[in-house]
Amino acid sequence: MYKPRKIEQQDNWLDESGVKIYTITYQANILDQALYKKALISIKQSIGIPWKNTAAFTIFHEGELYPYLILGYWQNGNELFVRVYVHINKHWIEDPAQFSFCLYDMEVMWNERNIYINTIDKDSPSLDAYQNTRLPLESQSALIE
């Protein structure tokens, strides 16, 4: 059954290469980002694209059952590539046959789509504008009812 989740993003939530960070929490708490940030570094290295020149975002998602790390990045003009990792038994795994993003993540993706259109997919693209643009998330302040 759908229940609103706490979705947050702050102006200073960028990793060292400019990937925007969002959090989604199952409980009405503040997410400890340390576990996710460590994984994000190795995940990005394994993908091997020039992150400092790529419009990208990540979602650190405290799921009901597991922690999820969703990494979205724009390539081929206007395609959003999405990788989903789940933390199980002290390991981050990627298994598209078992795990995917969920409807809460899609709210962030919709906002990122709009930001991408307004900052990158235009005559004068600006990665800096993409990285520094925040659109209001409807549930940014909404806590679980």
Score class of each variant (00 low, 15 high):
K20R: 10
K44T: 12
N132C: 01
K90E: 14
N132M: 01
E64I: 11
T23E: 03
S42V: 11
W92I: 11
G63P: 03
P50L: 12
Y2V: 12
L65F: 11
L14E: 03
Q75L: 07
D123R: 14
H87Q: 13
K37L: 14
F101Y: 15
K6R: 07
Y36R: 00
I70W: 05
Y36M: 01
M109V: 09
K6F: 09
I59N: 01
R134E: 01
L65H: 15
D11R: 15
Y66H: 12
Q10H: 10
Y22L: 04
A97R: 04
M1W: 11
A34I: 11
K3M: 05
L127C: 07
E64P: 00
K20E: 01
L35G: 05
L14D: 04
I115S: 00
L135G: 09
I21M: 05
A56L: 05
H91Q: 15
K52A: 14
F60D: 00
W110Y: 15
D95G: 05
L71Y: 09
K37Y: 07
N53P: 09
S141N: 14
R5G: 00
H87R: 11
I144D: 05
S126L: 04
N89V: 12
H61Q: 00
F99R: 01
I7E: 02
E94Y: 09
D123S: 14
D105Q: 08
T25N: 03
L71M: 03
Q98V: 10
R113A: 06
K38A: 10
D11L: 14
D123Y: 14
I88P: 08
V82A: 04
A28I: 07
E62F: 01
W74F: 13
N89D: 15
G48L: 04
Q140V: 09
D15H: 08
F101G: 06
D128L: 13
V86L: 08
L40V: 08
M106P: 10
Q131V: 06
M1F: 13
P125N: 08
S139V: 01
A55S: 08
F101C: 02
F99C: 03
L35Q: 13
H61V: 00
G48S: 08
V86D: 07
N53V: 07
H87D: 05
I21T: 02
I47K: 13
I49L: 05
A129V: 06
N118K: 13
L143N: 11
